[in-house]
Simulated assay, not measured.
Amino acid sequence: MKPTQTDDGPTDPGTDGATGVDGGRLVGSDRVLAVLKELARHPGGVGLEELTRVMGSPKPTVHRALGALRRAGLADQDARGRYVLGDEFLRMAFAHHEARPDHVRVRPVLDALAGRFGETAHYAVLDGHEVVYRAKFDPPTGAVRLTSTIGGRNPAHTTAVGKLLLARELTSLEEVEAWAGAPGGLNRRTPRSLCAAADLHRELAATRERGYGVDDQENETGVNCLALPVYLTSPTAPSGAVSISALAYRTPLASLVDALDEIRALLNEPNG
């Protein structure tokens, strides 16, 4: 059988030259996508030398991948010659995000919550061992920098939204133990993170009983959070969860719990 040709030269016939991995080395479109993802980690731009070092690939192959991305408008070079995400990529990403039904429907709620409490409001969904933030609203004033970003991820077991959504899926200690036994175990984000399966199981049981999730400085020191389910696609299964992430010294967790009725009322308002 004739070897398949890639831009790195011939590959083994068993390797998919378009999207495969050859001996742990990215080839073809997989490499192009890996370069694209790496560019997203450098909003200030990144030079070819640094990108080559981070990618662990030869400079010519990284340069070819950048060339393909530039021709598609997904990458560009700034005035300093550093590579950045292209305007076409940003246009597609923002257009897609703005058109998502869940984002559009939950936006008024997040805006109202951020304005009412003067803290950041999120909408997030569960994806395996992590939560993914679909929408985020900062308050008009007093916003602080959090680890959450739209499209970003945080561990499910350390976040209020994650524990709330996990509580529906993991109802026994055995299920929690199997989930927590994933490769690498559970990450400890702060000294308060619940990383033992038994501790997490008790917290999930308490979450089911009270109907809301809490994060008592378990994901970020100095930040607490309260989350409630949102039913955008089904009247019985939550599509995700809305949360208020607050500075502990400014808005204690107890204050958010005391405001539960008001938060629920905002969630149930028309367009909410």
Rank of each mutant, 00 (worst) to 15 (best):
P3I: 10
D16V: 02
G20D: 03
D22N: 07
G23H: 14
G23P: 05
V27K: 09
V35I: 11
P43I: 07
G44A: 12
G44W: 12
V46N: 08
G47W: 13
L51I: 00
V54D: 06
K59T: 04
G67L: 10
R70D: 05
G73S: 07
Q77Y: 08
Q77I: 07
A79D: 06
R80Q: 04
G81V: 01
M92N: 03
A95G: 08
D102N: 14
D102W: 07
R107L: 13
D111K: 08
E119W: 14
H122L: 09
V125K: 15
G128M: 06
G128D: 07
H129G: 04
V131S: 15
A135Q: 08
P155A: 06
P155F: 07
A156F: 02
T158Y: 11
T159G: 11
A160D: 13
G162C: 09
A167V: 02
A167E: 05
W179S: 06
G181I: 03
N187I: 03
N187R: 14
D199I: 00
R202D: 15
E203L: 01
G213I: 00
G213N: 00
V214W: 03
D216P: 05
Q217L: 05
Q217E: 05
N219E: 09
Y231G: 01
T233E: 06
A237S: 15
A237V: 08
P238G: 06
A241Y: 10
A241W: 13
I244R: 08
S245R: 10
L247T: 08
T251W: 11
P252Q: 12
L260A: 01
D261L: 05
N268H: 10
E269L: 15
G272P: 03
